[in-house]
Every structure is written in C-alpha cells, then in structure tokens.
C-alpha cells in the first residue's frame, strides 16, 4: 500500500502540474489578444500595450508562467480583468450548485443501481434481469441532454413541482426544500445517465464474482447467502463500480454544464460559457483549473479506495 500510495501521489502532482500548464497554454499560445478582448471596441494599440503592461502580460512567458503557477498553487486566482470582481468570489458562487448536482445525482444513482443490480445478478437471465438489461442498454443510447430537456414536461408541467422551471435556482442556505426542487430535474436526469452505467457495470461484475470459485468455497463454510453476497461478492465487484464512477465523472460534468445552460443555473458550466462569450481568459483559466483539479482529486480518491479494497491492485 505504501508504494502504491507514493506512486499515485506522484502521478497526482504530475497531473495537476500538467493541468496548470495546459490551462496556461490555452490563453497564451492560441490566437487572440486578451487586451483586445477586454477593451473590445475601445481597443487601440497604445491602450492595449498599456493594459498588457499593467496586467504583466508584457513579461517573458516563463516569468508569467512562474507567477501563474505560484498563484494557482495558493488558490489565488486574482481579480477579474473584466468585471473587477475577485475570481475566487465568482467561483464560490458558481461552485455550490454544480457540486450539489453532482453529489446528489451520484447518490441517487448508486442508491438505485446497487440493489437493482444485485436483484438482477441473483437471477441472471431471469425475467427481471433480461428486462433490466435490455432497458439499460436502450437507455445507454439516450443522451443526457435529451433527458434533461424532456423531463421538464412531466416534472414541471404535469407534476407542477415548484421552482423546477428555468432560472429559479435557490441557494441551499436560503431554503433547502426550494433548493432541492429547483435542482430536481437536473439531478433526476443526471442520475438516470449514471444509474444506467453503474447498473450495467455492477450487475455484470457481480454475476462474474458470484461464479467465482471462492464463492463456492464460502458457501461450503455454511455461511448465509446475504453474508456471501455482502462479504464475499460485493467487495471485489465494488472495484469495478468505483472505476465506473471515476470514468463517468467527466461525462457527468458535461451533463451538469448542459443542465445549467438549459435551466439557467449560475453554476460552473454557465459561468464558463459566459466567460467564453466575452472571452474572459482569466476566468476561463481559473474554471478550467478548478474543475479539472476537482475531477482529478475525485479520481485520486477512487484510486486509493480501490487500492484499499483490492490488495491485488495496491501490491504489484
């Protein structure tokens, strides 16, 4: 475990450095002049040069990079060149709804996927298993954005869930019920997409696990079915499920961005899209860095957890 931990940590640091580098590249190596973007119509060569100087954009690239790395490592994102608002403040406003959607949808997906996958795996090729397998294969082909959009009709129009329409996001601190209501459609839609993946992965792995010889061995000890399931089959199968969660994370982020865009929620995705309209390079950079870092940290945690659960992975 020790060596595994060190390896994963080294890889984590390396990935984070690469993310920083790439986020830096986006702004500095691609065509487009930040000063021009900031000043827009009012841009003149003189004004642009003066602005570049005040922003430190006239310095050599390596100096800019070093100060950028220094700032990012301290989570010091600076002040927005365009709005004048501290970027950390913008982030603290737009992160909560996104994180909430991710967490709640994953929770819902797992709460549904694990028992249903178990039910299907206990009788493979049974009626329930066949139906669930076919249904989930079909749902794989339904893009999340179609679900997000179409769920509006049953939830908002037929059921009339309050606050579930567009532009009605309520912060959690203000009213928790209204908050959940306002995110209900994205959460349900996102959880459907994740559920399908988790159900399929966990079901298939559980079926394989339950056919392993060590399950027969556990049976021959005379321990109960539920104990065999929870103690002997769930553990190896949860490794596959955890990997699936990690792999699914990036797709989930796409889903939340779309949900934010459709329902006009001021989350990370909405903010990022706004920033690309400007284009507000600094904000793009900060959002790219923060989002990528969060996803990478989640995957890091998953790696550690799988290493803990399955000693074959952490020992090599």
């Amino acid at each position: 475990m020790g060596r595994y931990l060190v390896k994963r940590l080294v890889f984590l640091v390396w990935i984070l450095l690469s993310v920083m580098f790439l986020a830096f590249l986006i702004i500095h190596l691609l065509p487009g002049d930040p000063a021009q973007a900031i000043l827009q119509q009012g841009w003149t060569p003189q004004l642009g040069a003066a602005l570049n100087k005040s922003l430190g954009l006239d310095k050599p690239l390596w100096q800019q990079y070093l100060s950028y790395v220094w700032n990012m490592a301290h989570l010091n994102f600076g002040t927005d060149w365009i709005s004048g608002q501290p970027i950390s403040q913008t982030l603290s406003q737009c992160l909560p709804p996104t994180i909430e959607m991710v967490l709640l949808s994953q929770l819902l997906a797992l709460v549904l996927a694990i028992p249903l996958a178990t039910l299907a795996a206990l009788r493979p090729s049974g009626i329930f298993d066949r139906l669930a397998n076919m249904g989930s294969f079909g749902l794989l082909s339904v893009p999340t954005y179609v679900v997000i959009t179409l769920l509006y009709i049953p939830i908002s129009e037929w059921l009339g869930v309050p606050n579930s329409g567009p532009a009605s996001y309520v912060p959690f601190t203000q009213d928790w019920l209204a908050n959940i209501e306002s995110l209900s459609i994205p959460i349900i839609a996102l959880s459907i997409g994740s559920f399908v993946v988790y159900f399929r992965v966990f079901r298939a792995d559980l079926i394989t696990s339950l056919q392993d010889e060590f399950i027969t061995m556990a049976r021959s000890k005379g321990i109960s079915k539920s104990r065999i399931l929870f103690r002997h089959a769930y553990r190896p199968s949860s490794v596959a499920l955890l990997s699936a969660i990690g792999v699914n994370m990036a797709g989930l982020i796409t889903g939340t961005f779309i949900a934010e865009s459709v329902f006009q929620i001021n989350g990370v995705g909405g903010q990022l899209l706004q920033a690309t309209q400007q284009p507000d390079y600094q904000l793009i950079q900060a959002i790219v860095f923060v989002t990528a870092t969060l996803i990478i940290l989640i995957n890091f945690a998953i790696d550690l957890l799988t290493g803990y659960i399955d000693p074959r992975i952490s020992r090599d």
Binding site: F214, G222, I223, R231, P236, D310
Partner: peptide, 24 residues
Amino acid sequence: LRKIWGTDIAMVFQDPMTSLNPVV
C-alpha cells in the same frame, strides 16, 4: 445444507488461488 456445511462436512478445493477470496 448450511447447517452441516463446515461443521459436519467440509471441502478442500482444488485450486487455492481461485478458491480463496482475493480481497478478504
């Protein structure tokens, strides 16, 4: 059967590599 498995009648399996649970 569970009542006699282990306590009355037990089995040594062929391949200990696959019949021991690798994650327990």
